[in-house]
Amino acid sequence: MIHRRFSFGAVLLALATGVGCNGDTPTSPTATATTATAAAPAYTEEWIDTLSVGGTRFYSFTVTQYGTVNVALTSVSGQFVPGTVTVGLGIGTPAAETCSPTSSISTQSGTGPQLTGAYNPGVYCVIIRDVGNLFAAARFSITVAYP
């Protein structure tokens, strides 16, 4: 009789152990492959300013969702400044008293975006600089389109 009572207790103990630790049983992860889709630009800002000889200027903007950023240098003009002059153009993040570019090119002005890329939410900046081609201050226009 005692043997039967002990067996019953052992069974109860085993069941309790299984139930007590049941919450720790891992479940198989479900494979959910997510591919982020870059949102199209929703906002456009036009930045018109003056670039001095040997100078640098930058402009900050905030991206609120992952998406495509397009930057177009649409015009460069001024006395003694040919419209075809090549300047430096970049996209980056504001850092200290400047814009630290992560992508940059030397380009002339044109209609299409000279720089484009997909960016996560955050604060970014466009930087323009004289790469040594200016002999006088240049008036420029840059269009920034972002999601």
């Binding site: 009572r5 002990f6 207790g9 103990l13 309790a16 152990t17 007590g20 630790c21 919450g23 720790d24």
Partner: peptide, 20 residues
């Protein structure tokens, strides 16, 4: 008794598996 043993054992098991 065997019953008391089971109760003590269950208490120990529950404490060991608690998510404290």
């Amino acid at each position: 008794t065997v019953g008391a043993f089971v109760i003590v054992a269950l208490t120990l098991v529950c404490n060991a598996c608690s998510d404290k």
